[in-house]
Design a protein around this nucleic acid. Structure first.
Lengths: 207, 207
DNA sequence: ACTACGAGGTTGACACTGTCTACATCTTGG
DNA sequence: CCAAGATGTAGACAGTGTCAACCTCGTAGT
């Protein structure tokens, strides 16, 4: 890649490692090794491993935001359909980027006080808040308690994503007669939440 | 405590540490230090730190199972009320035992192939499965796809618990006008899922 | 043109970790 | 009484994050 500072190279190396191996073994020295520099070099650009991870997590939040925004834009004008599309995009992003997504919710690996990270997280929640309030405006549930309603929706998609990434849906649900298919589970969730059924969009592949 | 083998003492020490400090810094050597033994002693009882953590996680699954069972028993006979109580008990347990609860879903800290741990997890899911099927029998949603419905319910409570433990509900939701009160959020979830509203049971305190 | 400086990289230390091995001790069954 | 197993100890090893000392440039200022 052109114009890549070595700082950006380190972040990219970490992200690549996450994509290939997940959180486990993501180590300052391993990143340095893969970037072809000495073990101390990354500390010239980041205060700590957690600071580097925070940058990766921040970029992941931004990627999530973009993926959700794209999905909502593609879903058209009907607010409930847009909210439904946002939920699908959220889970799709989380599963397709499980390494960075996990990092986003691991304050022991990131620095939770990182200002950029906090801002990116707030922006993502604000996006959800807007989608929910839009849907409320179109008659989806009572119009008050928007933040709480958003929290419930967030919990739902976050829970599905987390269990899916853990592999526990395949391992536990499918064994008991469920199909554990993510699209199917999300559709079921959204039927329960009184959201419209989606047009048939196949799963997988990252935006 | 009487009749406590040193193996049990190590597990109890780990659990106490988790209650006090959470996952961070939970280390074989720290457990040994607190138990007053040399750093190598725990390995006489457990193959690895992950094996010790698996025992703690297994016991946590059993505690969760018991808490949910108690709550369902106390909720009476109406299946939907029982399912509602199960959801509350789940989140209450997770928040009151956030250290062990986190461990339950951290395959990097436990040994996911541990047979006891797997069995305890399966038992907990079977319990939920039963509660959902009971509620379906009482007319709650269509009677098919029980496992998928259970997965959705699980995702919901797991998501709420996870975000609450992270503190992100206080930090992100409350700032945007939500009250982020767990009981309130759960009630909202359950209203959305068409479950009965609970009798007013105050939050907090572990069973 | 020369110099001072700062950004970035290297190397070697330090304390800490999990795990292994060799050794000591204590208990218990034959 | 003694042999064997269970349990605990001490030391080592490789790995980690982080720090400090050193080096090496390119560049800005004079």
């Amino acid at each position: 890649m052109a114009g890549t500072t070595s700082r950006e190279l380190l972040v990219a190396t970490a992200r690549t490692y996450l994509d290939e191996h997940g959180l486990e073994g993501l180590t300052l020295r391993e990143i340095a090794r893969r970037a072809g520099v000495s073990h101390g070099a990354p500390l010239r650009h980041f205060d700590s491993l957690a600071a580097l991870c925070s940058v990766v997590a921040t970029e992941a939040f931004e990627g999530l935001y973009g993926a959700v925004a794209d999905a909502m834009a593609a879903a058209g004008d009907e607010p409930r359909t847009r909210l439904q599309a946002a939920g699908h995009a959220y889970v799709r992003f989380a599963v397709a980027n499980s390494g960075p997504y996990s990092l986003m919710f691991r304050p022991d690996r990131c620095d939770p006080s990182d200002a950029d990270l906090q801002a990116a997280g707030q922006a993502a929640f604000a996006q959800l808040l807007f989608a929910v309030s839009e849907a409320q405006g179109a008659g989806w549930h009572p119009a008050d308690h928007t933040a709480d309603l958003a929290a419930v929706v967030w919990s739902g998609v976050h829970g599905v994503a987390g269990l899916a990434i853990l592999g526990v849906l395949d391992r536990t649900v499918a064994v008991n007669g469920g199909d554990a298919d993510l699209t199917h589970l999300l559709d079921l969730t959204q039927r329960l939440l009184d959201l419209p059924q989606p047009s048939p969009t196949p799963f997988g592949g990252e935006p």
